[in-house]
């Protein structure tokens, strides 16, 4: 099945259909064992961040987390943001390679740019549901950005 596309202004954010999504704009791809996912930024996130300069985690590998728990920080050319767990579960490990050079987030966000592995039994959004979520939140996202420029 071919990828879905969400239109951000003129930018086409690619949403692959081979994985699941969280409402805080991360993708989750089953990684071997059931209930274990590789997690990364969606094209939508990366487009808003643009070039990622710096990534830092504030928790250790194998830490239990709850949804919306602050787990780290990202800084890019356009933005800074705290990062939050997408669901209750356990974060098993982080993509060590990104800590030295986070550029894979921009060059291969759905592959080598993965962030961490999460163990959880929570249900996530299907690609279609994530598209709807993006649609519903698009205006809010724009005013979030606009509000901070004014």
């Amino acid at each position: 099945m071919s990828d879905l596309t969400f239109l951000m202004g003129k930018f086409e954010a690619r949403i692959p259909t081979d994985r699941l999504y969280s409402d805080n704009h991360l993708w989750l791809q089953p990684d071997g064992e059931s209930g274990i996912y590789r997690v990364g930024f969606t094209a939508y996130s990366v487009r808003l961040l643009q070039d990622v300069y710096f990534l830092e985690w504030s928790i250790d590998p194998n830490s239990a987390v709850y949804k919306k728990q602050e787990i780290g920080e990202v800084e890019s050319s356009k933005a800074v943001s705290s990062l939050f767990a997408p669901a209750d579960g356990e974060i098993l490990d982080f993509n060590e390679q990104l800590l030295d050079d986070p550029s894979a987030i921009n060059t291969d966000g759905y592959g080598k740019g993965w962030l961490f592995r999460l163990k959880t039994d929570v249900q996530f959004l299907t690609p279609d549901e994530y598209m709807q979520h993006l649609d519903a939140g698009w205006e809010k996202t724009q005013s979030l950005i606009k509000g901070q420029y004014n």
Binding site: S22, D23, N24, H25, S45, L48, L49, K67, K68, E70, E75, K78, A79, V80, S81, S82, L83, F84, A85, P86, T141, L144, I145, Q148, Y149
Partner: peptide
């Protein structure tokens, strides 16, 4: 810089 924390689930 823009703070995207809300977007990422703050």
């Amino acid at each position: 810089k823009i703070d995207l924390s809300k977007l990422f689930g703050a």
